[in-house]
Nucleic acid binder design. Structure first.
Lengths: 210, 210
DNA sequence: CCTGTTACTATACGGTAGTTCAATCACGAA
DNA sequence: TTCGTGATTGAACTACCGTATAGTAACAGG
């Protein structure tokens, strides 16, 4: 008797695209841009070489798709409310949570930044989306700031985003050197001077002390 | 009469190595890790393909050499004293000066971070040097801090380094969005709360206000 | 002048990059 | 069942990757 031939799985375009994006992210998380290659990705996904071009047109197309999903998931994660926490506190907790502040996720971001800086296609995509990111952080800051403080929260948001990016870089480069608690304390060290909510300070400023 | 044959220039190993490192840096500044290739670098340097292997053994060897020089020059720049400024103020001014805070230099750093995160050879080199960087910043901070403040300046230094890295990322990704003045203000916004030198605040904290 | 050392060139090689394309296969509509 | 659409394959293709190596040319020491 003959063995039944393995049924070829055939997915909708959307599902297959998502699978390829996942495979690409796994490769990037593992080895940065050097692992973002046709062969590595299709091996990870378990499909043939032609599929990437078929679904994304080119590797640049896949790169943009990966960036878009990373961005959307990032925004969703920092926007999710948390039990008993203010919007800004929820945001900071999300940023230092394992879901976002992991070596894998941050290595993907570090790789994407390197590409944004040098790849016009990806840079255009980034330009179109970045202002929304800053605005969502600025909104959380305004909510936490005393009214009429005269502080431009767009500027504070930009500074805070820089800090968050830098925390990501450090975490990638020296995974053990920057624990979640230190990251949280650093965030509040930058934010607190601009926020005097009620009588008691917001978050843990004293994390910076010995 | 015959034209005189062009005299083949022959340099000492050290000079040639430096030239190749410069060419490699120019390529990295132009296009990130994708331009860090044998062909691009030897074309930039105007030499033949074999020279890289001859002088550095491999591309990894050249990469480590580039990192080392970038690191040494960075340390030297932030350690240089400036007329009428304290050590910490000189350090911040150096960080936001065109020599360090340029798109070219920061693109090289962004590229190197991506490699450090994924290339064991470069990571080892980084590990061996990073603590010296943090220590030199912590020393400048201790000098500017009030005695007995109970603040761990190693921790503040780590936070500050994160911020500086993040400023670099932003500058690479959105060169126009982050002017020198904003970078300077952001640095002092993080540092000032930990430093109450004399009666007047250090640096320009009010750069954060409208 | 001779000779050893070494910077340097030029080319070859195997491997892998991204893309193209004709053929095939699975599924839904008619 | 038939047919067409579109997902999927797999090989071919050119270009480029990093490295190895044999040969050449310039310099230093004698």
């Amino acid at each position: 008797m003959t063995v039944a031939p393995p049924k070829k799985s055939r997915l909708s375009a959307g599902k297959r695209r998502a699978l390829l994006e996942d495979a690409a992210r796994a490769c990037m998380a593992r080895g940065g841009i050097r692992e973002f290659t046709v062969d590595k990705i299709v091996a990870e996904a378990g499909v043939s070489r032609g599929l990437i071009t078929h679904h994304f047109g080119s590797m640049d197309g896949l790169l943009v798709a990966v960036y878009s999903r990373m961005y959307d998931e990032w925004i969703a994660a920092i926007s999710a409310p948390r039990q008993g926490l203010s919007r800004l506190e929820s945001l900071v907790e999300a940023l230092v949570s394992p879901a976002l502040f992991s070596r894998e996720v941050l290595n993907i971001w570090l790789t994407l930044w390197g590409e944004i800086a040098n790849n016009p296609v990806l840079r255009a995509e980034h330009r179109a989306r970045y202002s929304q990111y800053r605005e969502s952080i600025a909104a959380a800051l305004r909510e936490a700031a005393p009214p009429g403080s005269g502080i431009d929260m767009d500027t504070v948001a930009s500074a805070f985003i820089c800090l968050v990016d830098g925390l990501g870089v450090q975490r990638c480069v020296d995974p053990d050197l920057l624990p979640e608690t230190a990251a949280r304390a650093t965030c509040w060290a930058l934010l607190s001077p601009h926020l005097t909510l009620g009588d008691k300070p917001v978050g843990n400023v004293r994390g910076m002390e010995t």
